[in-house]
């Protein structure tokens, strides 16, 4: 076991970038679930592919490797794949296979997406991608941590970035508590 200490500013920058990936994963999971429910084949396939590529970035981050930022989504994904090939060629091969898999007939869609999710959660070790609620919790927790550490640095924080839900909010609940309560409310009784 070892301790890796980083200057606070570096840490905040890196974790803000990761927080963006968590937000993107949450948005993609909403796209995926909604598309599957609505029978939107193309959107579902697109969302699972982007989740796969986001998960590569998260996997690399966990190994201490930062994928350089690029405005071009595809460029960034290809850079990430190059880095993964260097780190774990066998895993990279599996990701390439899933990335290049052709869009399946509608009857095979769920099975094919399950195969990608298995690679994301087990191979790339991004377990929270497995459900929409988990992606929300991951994003909220990561936001809370980044904001708390940024506060230590004296970086100004706005409190009105979260759109509170008056049907859930309570005086003693902060935004994070409200997110958890919203998820609790959405669980089947």
């Amino acid at each position: 076991m070892s301790v890796v200490a980083k200057p606070l500013k570096t840490w905040v920058k890196e974790h803000s970038d990761l927080n963006y990936e968590h937000l993107a994963t949450m948005a993609l999971r909403h796209d995926l679930d909604g598309a599957l429910d609505a029978g939107q084949l193309g959107l579902a396939w697109w969302a699972q592919q982007q989740m796969l590529l986001n998960s590569v970035v998260l996997f690399l981050a966990d190994a201490g490797i930062t994928v350089p930022w690029s405005e071009d989504r595809l460029d960034r994904a290809m850079q990430a794949m190059q880095l993964l090939e260097g780190l774990n060629p066998a895993l990279a091969d599996q990701v390439w296979q899933r990335w290049l898999a052709p869009i399946p007939p509608v009857d095979d869609l769920v099975h094919e997406i399950d195969r990608t999710m298995e690679l994301i959660t087990s191979g790339l070790k991004v377990p929270f991608a497995s459900s929409r609620d988990e992606t929300v919790i991951k994003w909220a927790t990561s936001t809370k941590i980044v904001r708390t550490v940024a506060q230590q640095l004296g970086i100004a924080q706005r409190d009105d970035w979260y759109v509170s839900d008056p049907t859930v909010s309570e005086p003693e609940l902060d935004w994070y508590g409200e997110v958890l309560k919203t998820l609790e409310k959405s669980q089947p009784k």
Partner: peptide
């Protein structure tokens, strides 16, 4: 401020 987000039961704002 650029954006704001709010989680709802099956969506987000």
């Amino acid at each position: 401020k650029p954006i704001a987000i709010g989680i709802r039961e099956s969506r987000y704002m």
